[in-house]
Design a protein around this nucleic acid. Structure first.
Lengths: 225, 225
DNA sequence: CCCTATGTTAACTAAATGTTAAGCAGGGAC
DNA sequence: GTCCCTGCTTAACATTTAGTTAACATAGGG
C-alpha cells in the first residue's frame, strides 16, 4: 500500500529533508510551503497523511488543520503536527483542531518513521482488539482473540474474513451494500474488484454454514436476524 | 536511556544544586521556578521524573501535581515531592494528588540519587517483581524471581523476552497488537523496528515450544488460551 | 430463456512474518 | 582502563499465507 503523504512547512529545507526520508521508504509525497497551498494540494492529492508545521506565517498549522478538516474528503486523513519543543502552542489547541499526533522538531528520521508506521498499523485495523464480542445464533465473534466460535468450537479466521463477519454481525438483519463494505473494510482509497468480497463471503460461509449470511441480490449481504 | 528530569522549586539555589548533582550523573534536566512554568515545560519536555517542591507561592506542589496528572502524556511520569521535615502538609494529600515518592529537605545528594536510581530501576521494568506468577499449559512465569519454568525446569530468560512472554501470558488468548506490545514493553518514546518483536518471539518460541504463541497475521500475537 | 448478479475454483501477487547472522552497547571482571 | 560476555537490535534474506484476481459456472428475475 503506497501511502501518500503531504508535507507542509514554510521552511523548504525541512520539507526537503522530510521528503527525502519518506521517499527512501517508498512513500509518495507532495509538498506545500504555506497553509493556502496545503489546502489546495490536499484537495487534489488526497493524502493519507499530512505532516503539518504548527508555526507558519499567515495561516498557521492550527488554522490550516481546522480548515482541512472541513473538507469531508479528508475526514479520514491523518494529520500530524510538527512542533518546536519550546513553542507555546499547547497541544490542546492542536487536538481541538483535529490533529492526530505530534512530533517534535528537530525531526529525527527514525522517530518520524516509527510514528508513521504506528499510524499505518492503526489505520489498517478496522476491528479493535479491545472491542466487545458479539454473539448470534450460536456464533460468537471475539475481537480480543480474533477468533470465531461456533458451538464453543474455535475457528481460525484470517483478518479480512474476520472483519467482514464482524461487520455483518454487528447489525444482524441489516443489509450492507458492497460499497459500504468496501469503505468500511478496505478504506476509501483502495481498489478491489467486487468479486473479492464474494470470495471472502464464500470462505466465511464455508466455515460457519451457508445460511448464516444471506445474499440480497442487487443490494448486498446480511447476517440473518 | 538518558533520563529526563524536571526540577521545580521556587528557590533557584536549590534547583541549581539539584541540577548540578543530576547532571553529574548524566541526567538531562530542565528547571521551573513555579507551578505554572512547570506545567508548560513538562508538556514539552516530557520528563521521566519531576522533582517538585511542595511549598511554593501561588500554585503549590500538590496543586501542580494534580494538574500535571491531568495531562495524559504525563501519566507514566514519576513525581517526587520535596518536603521540609516540619511541614504540615501530610503525605496523604500528596499521594492523593498523584505523588510517587517523598524526599525530605534539606536535600542530601546521595540520598536523592539513590532514590532516583531506585525509581529508574523500577520504571525500566515493565514487570513488577512483586506481581504474581502466572501459569498456563505447564509454563510458569514468575516475576518475583524473573524465571520461567516449563514442567518445573527453570529456563534462563533475558529481560525483554521475559517481559514479552509475561505480557502475553497475562491474558491468554488475547491478541496483542504490535503497537500495544511496543508501548507496553519499550515505552512510547523508544523507536524500534517491528522485526525486533519477531526476533524476541522467535527466541521465546525456541525455548517454550512453537505452538505456545500464535501469530495472528496483520494483527499481532497471542498466547494460546 | 436470456441477461446480469453472484458463486466458485484455482492461480497469482503481495504483504506479513520467520530466520539467521552480524553489529553494538552496557556491565562486570580483571 | 580494557577485555569479554551477554543481550538487544538491526539488516538481509527466506518463507508463508492471506488476499486478490481472472476465468468460468450457475441461478433467478424479468
Amino acid at each position: 500500500m503506497a501511502w501518500k503523504i503531504l508535507i507542509v512547512d514554510d521552511e523548504p529545507d525541512i520539507v526537503d529533508f522530510i521528503e527525502y526520508n519518506l521517499q527512501k521508504e517508498d512513500f509518495i509525497t507532495a509538498k506545500a510551503y504555506n497553509g493556502e497551498d496545503a489546502l489546495r494540494i490536499a484537495a487534489d492529492f488526497r493524502p493519507d497523511l499530512i505532516i503539518l508545521d504548527v508555526m507558519m506565517p499567515q495561516m498557521d498549522g492550527i488554522d490550516t488543520c481546522r480548515r482541512l478538516r472541513q473538507n469531508p474528503d479528508l475526514a479520514s486523513t491523518y494529520i500530524m503536527f510538527l512542533t518546536a519543543r519550546s513553542e507555546e502552542y499547547s497541544e490542546i489547541a492542536g487536538f481541538e483542531a483535529g490533529a492526530d499526533d505530534f512530533v517534535n522538531k528537530p525531526v529525527k528520521p527514525r522517530a518520524l518513521m516509527s510514528r508513521i508506521s504506528a499510524i499505518a498499523r492503526r489505520k489498517s485495523l478496522t476491528v479493535d482488539p479491545d472491542s466487545n464480542s458479539v454473539s448470534h445464533k450460536g456464533i460468537k465473534i471475539d475481537p480480543s482473540s480474533y477468533t470465531v466460535s461456533i458451538e464453543d468450537k474455535e475457528l481460525p479466521f484470517p483478518k479480512k474474513e474476520f472483519e467482514l463477519l464482524y461487520l455483518l454481525m454487528s447489525k444482524p438483519g441489516k443489509v450492507f451494500t458492497r460499497e459500504k463494505i468496501l469503505n468500511k473494510i478496505w478504506g476509501e482509497s483502495v481498489y478491489v474488484v467486487d468479486r473479492t468480497i464474494d470470495v471472502h463471503i464464500r470462505k466465511i460461509r464455508e466455515k460457519i454454514g451457508d445460511d448464516m449470511i444471506q445474499t440480497v441480490k442487487g443490494v448486498g449481504y446480511k447476517f440473518v436476524a
